[in-house]
Amino acid sequence: MDVDRTEQHARFYGDDGSIIWESDVVTGQPNKGHDTPAGVWSITSREHGDINLRGPVGDDGEPEWDSHVQYWMGVVGSAVGFHNAPWRSQFGGNIYTWYGSHGCINLSMEKADELYNVIQVGDVCIVHD
């Protein structure tokens, strides 16, 4: 898996080097300190169903975010991953600069479903600019 934060696009390559999946994405919002972490990672988990993503608890005792998604593919432990983002209608471009994620890699429902069906725990994921 290759995630280009500048291009806001991800590509999953087969063993022969051919692209078997690709999508525009929305990554972390850098000006709020939520960059999707660059580096070489691996897929740590795959989940499908009613998944509740909660942010850190703020001063008010409530999580900073509380979102329900249907697909989760963890990349940086359980803190950062690929997931569908039902609150978004657009992906790619420069959306991440003003309406980026908290670090996760947001996908459309269709693209999250496609990725879930081809990626496996242990697959390598490179995140870069």
Rank of each mutant, 00 (worst) to 15 (best):
M1K: 09
M1V: 15
M1T: 14
M1C: 12
D2E: 15
D2G: 11
D2V: 12
V3D: 04
V3H: 04
E7M: 14
E7G: 15
H9A: 03
H9M: 11
H9V: 07
A10T: 07
R11F: 11
R11L: 13
R11V: 10
F12I: 15
D15P: 01
D16W: 01
G17E: 11
G17Y: 09
G17P: 03
I19L: 08
I19T: 15
I19N: 02
I20W: 07
E22K: 14
E22A: 10
T27V: 03
G28S: 03
Q29A: 06
Q29K: 08
P30S: 05
P30I: 01
K32L: 14
G33D: 02
H34I: 02
H34M: 14
D35S: 13
T36R: 00
P37H: 02
A38G: 03
G39R: 05
G39Q: 05
G39D: 05
V40M: 03
V40A: 11
W41T: 12
S42A: 06
S42L: 02
I43M: 12
R46P: 00
E47G: 10
H48C: 02
G49C: 02
D50F: 00
D50R: 14
I51K: 05
N52P: 00
N52M: 09
R54L: 06
R54H: 05
R54E: 14
P56L: 01
V57Y: 10
G58M: 08
G58A: 05
D60C: 01
E62L: 08
E62I: 00
W65F: 14
D66R: 03
H68Q: 06
H68N: 06
H68R: 09
V69Y: 01
V69H: 02
Y71A: 06
W72F: 06
G74L: 10
G77C: 12
S78M: 13
S78C: 04
S78R: 15
S78K: 14
S78N: 15
G81W: 12
G81N: 11
G81L: 10
F82E: 06
F82K: 07
H83V: 06
H83Q: 03
N84H: 09
W87I: 04
W87V: 04
W87H: 05
W87N: 03
S89C: 01
S89R: 13
Q90S: 14
Q90G: 07
G93S: 07
N94Y: 01
N94T: 15
Y96E: 04
T97V: 00
T97C: 01
W98F: 09
S101L: 00
S101M: 00
G103P: 03
L107A: 07
M109W: 11
M109N: 12
M109I: 07
M109H: 13
E110D: 13
E110A: 14
K111I: 05
K111Y: 10
K111Q: 15
K111P: 04
D113T: 14
L115A: 08
Y116P: 00
Y116F: 15
Y116L: 09
N117V: 07
V118Y: 04
I119Q: 04
I119A: 15
I119F: 07
Q120T: 10
Q120Y: 07
Q120H: 08
V121R: 09
V121Q: 11
G122V: 09
G122D: 10
D123F: 07
V124G: 01
V124D: 04
I126W: 00
V127C: 08
V127M: 12
D129R: 14
